[in-house]
Design a protein around this nucleic acid. Structure first.
Lengths: 218, 218, 218, 218
DNA sequence: AATGAATGAGACTTCATTCAT
DNA sequence: CATGAATGAAGTCTCATTCAT
C-alpha cells in the first residue's frame, strides 16, 4: 500500500531517453523520496528506487557515487525545498517582523512540506542521523540558518515591542522544538493531530509570549 | 534486574548458563538497545545483538519469535521504562497538580531517559513507525496514557487557578510536542541544546501559561 | 493440517514418567512416522518428533544415536509391521498355495498398511533410498523375503496346475512392481485410485495368468 | 538446447556471460536434476545447484522466484521431457494401435528416461508429493494425458480385436502401476532388476491380455 | 532417565555494486 | 549514456546435537 500523499504521487514517467544529467539526478532523488516514504530507509533498495524512476538498476551508480551519496543528496534536496518555502515570505519589504515570523511558522505546516510522505522521509533520516554525522551535518546547516533568522526576527519584536526579560534565542529554541515535535505527532497520530492544530498551538504560544503583537487563534 | 544506566556501554557479561527466561529476554533486549544506539535499526543485526549480549547467534530465535518481535519487545520495554519514570512522582498525595505536572515534565529529561543512547533508539523507532503500524500502536498506548494524565492535571490547574479560556487538551498537545521536539534537538545538536535547556524552556512555557502557579526559570 | 489416517491418529499421550526403554523407542518411532506423514522426511525435525511424542527434545539422542539412526529404525519398524501382516496368512496348513498367494496380495492393501499416513512415509523413504545405501539395504531385506516366498508359492501353482512356460520369478517380479506402483497411484490420486482397485487389478492379473485357479473379480 | 544424456555427470560448463534467460533457466534446472540425483531433494541446496551449474549463489533467485519454484519448474521440465518421449511414436499414421501402445510402454524404459539419475529425481519428487499438492498437480497433468491416450488405444484394440469383457480403463490403470512399480524396483535393485526386465514383463502382461495381438517375449 | 536452554554451522534469500554489451 | 545479468557478502532463521541441571 502506498502512503497517500497530499499533492502528488510519483509514478514512473518514462522520461526522454537521453535526459540532461541534472534531470536524471532529480528524477532519482524524487524516486528515493517516494521509496523511503513507502518502504522506509532500510526498506529502500536500489531496485525499488530505479523501479519507481522507471530506469534500470545500474544507473544510480552512474549518476551518484553509491547509495549513501544518493541518500545524502536526497536529504540535501529536501532541506533545500524546505528552505525555499520558509524564505519565500521574507522578501516582502512591507512585512513586519511579526508577519515574517508567523510566515516561517506557517511554512512548516504547508501541505507541500508537512504531509505524510515527506514527514516519513524526514523522520527516516532523523532516525539515522543519531549515529551518522554526515546526516547531522546536512541537517544542522539547514536548521541553523532558520534558527538564526527566527532569532533575529524575535529579537526585533522583543526590542520594538518592549518585551523585556525575554531571550530571543530561547524562544527560537522553543519554536524549533515545537516544529519538530508537532511534525512527529502529526506523523504518528494522523487522525488526531493535524497540521492546522500544530499551527494553531504555535500561534497560541507566540500569542502568549507576544500578547500585544499576536492574537490567540480562538 | 540488571539494566538501565545512563552512560555505561554494554559489554558481554557472561551470565549463568541457565538463567531464568525472563532474564535472558531482558539481557537480549538490553543488547538490542545498545546495538540500535550504536548502529541504528537498519544496522542492527542478530549477530551484533548476540555479540553484545555475549551469547550465540541462534538464541534470539529461541527466546523471541523473530527479529521483528525482538524489536517490538524492545520498544515496549523502553516505553515501560519511560512510564515508570513519569509515574513515580504522581503517587505522593501531598503534591499539588502543578508539582505533579512539573514532575512529568522533568521525568522526560531525567538522565536515565534522556541520554544519547536511549534517544537514538527512540528516534530509530520513530523513523520506522511512520510505515509500521505495529510500532505506532505500541507508541500510542504509551503516549495516550501520559497525555491524558497531563490533560487531567492541567484541567485541575485551570479550574483551581481560574485560568479561564485555556483548553487543557491543547496545552497537553503542546507539551507532547515540546517533549519530542526538544529530545530530537538534544539528539541532533548535543553540545548546543541540552536536557536542562529543554526542561527550562518547558518550565518557561508553563510559567507563561500559568503565571500565578509556575515561575520562570531565570 | 493433518493428513487423515485410516485407523489411528497419533497424539502426545503422556506416558509413564519412567517407561521401559523399549517403550520409549517405540513411542519415538511412532512419533517419527506421524511426523514424516505430516511434514515429510525433510520437514521432520527432532523438535516435531519429540513434540508429537510429548517428550523433550534431548531425549532422542539418548535412546537413539542420532536422527539418522532414528530414521533407519523407523524404516525397519515399518518393514517389520508389513512383514507381520503378509506372514499372518501363511501359517494355516489348510490353505492352498493359491490362497496363500492371494493372502500376500491382500495384505498389501490392508487398511493398516495401505493408508495415506503409512504410504507417505514409505515413499518418503523411497525418495531417500535412491542415494542412501543404508535405506536400500533395509528395504531389500524386507522385499527379498517376500519375493522369495511369493516365487515359491507361484512355482507350486505352476507345477501343480500345469501352467507350463511360465517363470515364477518373472511373475513374482511383476507382483512386486504392481504392489509398489499401485501404492504410488493410491497415494498420488486418492479419490481416483483406491486400495480396492489395486487389489482387484492384481487379482485380475493373476486370474489371467492362472485361469484355472483364480477367477476374475467381475 | 543443451541437455539430456543417459550417463554423463554434469559439470560446470562456463556458458557465455550473457546468455539468453531461457538458457540460464535450463542450465539451472539441469543442475538441479543433477544435484537431486546426487544428494536427494533434502540434500539439494542452492549452493550445490549453483556450484554444479558453475554460477554464483545469488543467481537462482534472479531467474526463479525461490527454491520452491525452481523445484516445481524442474519437475515440470522432467514431465515435459517424458511426454516428448512417449508422444514421439504416436504420430506415425501407419502404426497400429498395438504398435502405438507398445511404443508408449517402451518409451518409459528408454535410457534417456529410465536411468538412475532421472529415476532418483522422480522418486525424490514422489516422496515430497504426498504432502505437497503443488507437486501432485504437476504430476497428475503429466499422468492423466498419458493414461487417457493409453486407454483410448487399448479401447481400440479391445473393439477391433474382439476382446470382450475387458475394460480399457482397468488395463490402463494396471499399466500405470507397472510403470511406476518397475521403475522403483529398477532404482532400488539396480543389478537385479533392469529396464529390459521391466519392458519384458509388461509385454508379457499385455501378451497375456491380448494374445492374438501381442506375443510373449520368450 | 529426562529436560530444554544453548550452541553454531549452514540454509535460503536479499541486495549494492560491477561490467559486458 | 544506459541496461540488467551476474556476483558474492551478509542477513535472518532453522535445527541437530550437547550438556548442566
Amino acid at each position: 500500500m502506498v502512503i497517500s500523499n497530499t499533492h502528488s504521487s510519483w509514478e514512473a514517467k518514462s522520461p526522454p531517453r537521453t535526459a540532461p544529467p541534472e534531470m536524471r539526478r532529480a528524477q532519482l532523488i524524487e524516486a528515493t523520496i517516494e521509496s523511503i516514504s513507502r518502504y522506509g530507509i532500510a526498506g529502500t533498495t536500489m531496485k525499488k528506487v530505479t523501479g519507481i524512476a522507471g530506469l534500470s538498476m545500474g544507473i544510480v551508480n552512474f549518476h551518484f557515487q553509491n547509495k549513501e551519496t544518493l541518500f545524502q543528496e536526497t536529504l540535501r534536496y529536501l532541506g533545500q525545498e524546505h528552505r525555499n518555502h520558509w524564505r519565500k515570505g521574507l522578501k516582502d519589504q512591507r512585512l513586519t517582523p511579526t508577519d515574517k515570523l508567523l510566515g516561517i511558522v506557517d511554512a512548516h505546516f504547508h501541505p507541500d512540506i508537512c504531509n505524510r510522505r515527506k514527514l516519513t522521509v524526514w523522520f527516516g533520516f532523523y532516525g539515522e542521523a543519531a549515529y551518522r554525522a554526515a546526516y547531522r551535518k546536512i541537517m544542522s546547516e539547514i536548521d541553523n540558518e532558520r534558527w538564526e533568522m527566527s532569532a533575529e526576527l524575535i529579537d526585533q519584536i522583543i526590542k520594538d515591542g518592549g518585551y523585556e526579560g525575554l531571550a530571543a534565542e530561547e524562544i527560537s529554541d522553543t519554536l524549533e522544538g515545537l516544529y519538530d515535535g508537532f511534525c512527529l505527532n502529526i506523523l504518528m497520530y494522523p487522525g488526531t493531530f493535524t497540521p492546522s492544530d500544530a499551527r494553531e498551538r504555535i500561534h497560541d504560544y507566540l500569542a502568549g509570549t507576544f500578547p500585544r503583537h499576536i492574537q490567540r487563534t480562538s
